[in-house]
Design a protein around this nucleic acid. Structure first.
Length: 416
RNA sequence: GUGACCAUAGUUCAGUCGGUUAGAACGCCAGGUUGUGGCCCUGGAGGUCGUGGGUUCAAAUCCCACUGGUCACCCCA
């Protein structure tokens, strides 16, 4: 019986983990400069947390969640996204009581049972950022800046920032009705998919990829033109701030977020280096969500970004290749006694934090040299009977080929 | 959930009209010096041609089913 990883999951192999670690370091660093603190929540939660926050009728909830009942008959779900868990933890641990504004970020695996394709996996990784406690449009802009800075620090500059406003509880219901009425008039010109969207998610019709849908809905009213005074003011402030910061953006009145909890600002960052799943990050404001999850009414804004998609862009761009870990020195023993000595010495060097390696296969000198070369060791020391007797050996610089005689006892000195 | 394409050494691939022993490159192992790597040369190991069935004198090659993968729709990061 040969086992395989579950469909839509994959191993991140050593050749890739170095790149991952590099990306993770950049994420942590940028978030530190923006004064956000990391939160780590469980990967599974009560199912109701997600149905409540993401929306009972969204596709994620109706057909993509990994849910099961545990042995105590409780329904639990592998998290499909990070915001719900983060807010649950925020509420449960009264984080809002420690200050007016709480800035959090998370990073880790998410789970959705979708058909895998380019840029879409069943277990995938996201990092996400949340700012809780303020309605300020500045924070909406801060979210966009964080994402853009992480990308540009990684050498990804060919991104597009798209923004929209999806309104609030004051203005959205009326607009939704208006839109539904207009869409019903066009119903027979729409694709079957869009026809069924009219009832349960009319906003979705607007960002259909179907050319006919696009054509049929060119003149349909957009949310951004039917905002209440407050939402309109908020949206224009966001735009003004972006302009002050010389950030390029485009307004797309058809941009819709897939999760129900968004209000006012919605944004997306896309890359043309990706396939049809071209969103690198997406987010927006969610002023009602904390209350919806049982907390005190608390405004919030945030975004989530896919790490695998980021990796795809990095690879395509040939982004900086982080150097593989290399031994500083490779110790070669020529006979049983010398190999034994080499192993012990290797361990002692490591104890002093000097990356050292030796041979475990009792191989020939030639084979060991080849191995040292393959591993790109900076130095090699060859030890045999003579060296053990005299207590000194030749230290070979593998780049220049130069050799110098060194004391075996003081080897660490020569390697600093 | 729907559709299209694909599946041959560890990896990337070639394999003609169905034809007898399935190849290449890279990688791996060993040798070319007796105590020195890379480049070069020589040799070697490594394959249930995804699985099962069918057609045929003969199947990696044609047909069917299954499994897996990829891409797109859908959805979304």
């Amino acid at each position: 019986m040969k086992f395989r990883s579950i469909k839509g999951t994959r191993d991140i192999l050593p050749d890739e983990t170095e790149r991952w670690q590099h990306v993770e370091r950049v994420i942590h660093r940028v978030l530190k400069t923006f004064n956000y603190r990391e939160i780590r929540t469980p990967v599974f939660e009560p199912t109701a947390l997600f149905t409540r926050s993401i929306g009972e009728l969204t596709d994620i909830v109706t057909k993509e969640m990994y849910s099961f009942t545990d042995r105590s008959e409780e329904s639990v779900t592998l998290r499909p996204e990070g915001t719900a868990s983060t807010l649950r933890a925020y509420i449960q641990n009264n984080l809002g009581e420690q200050g007016a504004l709480t800035k959090l970020y998370y990073m880790g695996p998410m789970f959705r049972q979708e058909r895998p394709q380019a840029g879409r996996l069943r277990q995938f990784h996201q990092f996400g950022v949340e700012a809780l406690g303020s309605t300020a449009p500045e924070l909406d802009v801060e979210m966009m800046l964080i994402a853009l800075q992480i990308y540009s620090d990684l050498g990804i500059t060919e991104t597009r920032l798209i923004i929209n406003s999806v309104g609030c509880e004051q203005c959205r219901p009326a607009y939704k009705e208006l839109l539904t009425r207009e869409l019903l008039k066009l119903k027979d010109r729409l694709s079957p998919d869009s026809q069924s969207r009219i009832e349960h998610n009319p906003l979705r019709v607007l960002d259909s990829k179907d050319e006919k849908d696009r054509a049929a809905t060119v003149d349909v009213p957009l949310m951004k033109d039917h905002l209440c005074a407050e939402c309109a003011g908020h949206f224009s402030t966001v735009q003004r701030l972006l302009q002050s910061l010389s950030i390029h953006f485009t307004i797309d009145g058809r941009l819709v977020r897939g999760l129900d909890y968004y209000t006012k600002t919605a944004f997306e960052i896309t890359s043309s280096d990706l396939g049809s799943q071209d969103a690198l990050a997406g987010g927006g404001r969610y002023d009602l969500l904390v209350k919806e999850l049982g907390g005190k009414p608390t405004p919030g804004t945030g975004f989530a970004a896919g790490i695998e998609r980021l990796m795809m862009v990095l690879e395509k761009r040939g982004g900086e290749v982080t150097p593989a870990s290399r031994p500083r020195v490779f110790l070669i023993g020529l006979d049983a006694a010398s190999r034994s000595w080499a192993f012990v010495k290797t361990c002692l060097l490591r104890k002093q934090s000097i990356p050292a390696e030796t041979d475990y296969m009792a191989r020939s000198l030639k084979a060991q040299m080849r191995e040292a070369n393959r591993q790109q060791a900076s130095f090699v020391v060859v030890v045999g009977e003579q060296e053990l007797q005299s207590g000194s050996a030749k230290l070979k610089n593998m780049q220049s080929g130069e050799e110098m005689t060194v004391s075996l006892d003081a080897l660490e000195q020569s390697l600093k």
